[in-house]
Amino acid sequence: MIESPNLTPSSPTPPNLSTASKATRIIGWAALAVTGLALLFGLVISGPEVNMRDSVRLLYVHVPSILTAYTCFGITLVGSVMYLRTQSQFWDLAAASAAEVGVVFLGLGLVTGALWGKPTWGTYWEWDPRLTSTAVMFIMYIGYLAIRRMEFSPEVRSRRAAVVGIISILNVIIVHYSVQWWRGLHQGQTFGLDPQIRDMQYFSWFLGTVAMALVASWLLIHRFRVSWLERQVEESQLVRALAERRREAGE
């Protein structure tokens, strides 16, 4: 259990309410620097690809953002399971923060994917397993975030959100395989298998991945700390309200 700061106005020394720390500042500057490098390599130094031409540059954003989103939802799954096991606020808030960051990156991934699909496949959207399950996943995690905003007591909200956080992953797998059974093939993994992408293009993609990972970590840590402060405010308001009721009852 994390110790709560004293948030009452009468406290003599104001508590440190900043969500920044030395570590996040380093991550933040590193994220800016690597993003700058990724832009330089992705847009200027690396050349167009043989088949995809310049649209390959979209993949330096698209693939890293999808990977980042999947990682975030992985954290949500782990956080949800661990919350149900330990009832620890840490895991609950980690799951919530990761889902929020994940939704942002998944949205970015869907948009860049559609923009990439138009010149490559000739269409913004294909009803293939990966795209369809990703779209369903996007909506599902928006639903998860909706639960997190509901007016339950904190424990009930955390518990129900954890259940949804676990079932959502299960459902993504089910949707993926049922659509796969229904439809044909995605073009397969572009990286690792496709020999057309190499050298500078590969390096640009690598830089994009590192930049995304740093930005996501920075957002995640800050979001976690903001959620934690929100929770403290929520609880201190409850404590204050209870104290007031008691005083009224005593008078």
């Binding site: 369903v136 909506i139 599902m140 928006i142 639903g143 909706a146 639960i147 949804v164 079932i167 459902n171 089910i174 949707v175 049922s178 659509v179």
Partner: peptide
């Protein structure tokens, strides 16, 4: 919002 994505398969 919660039920329909789950029921899509």
């Amino acid at each position: 919002l919660l039920v329909l994505p789950i029921l899509s398969p």
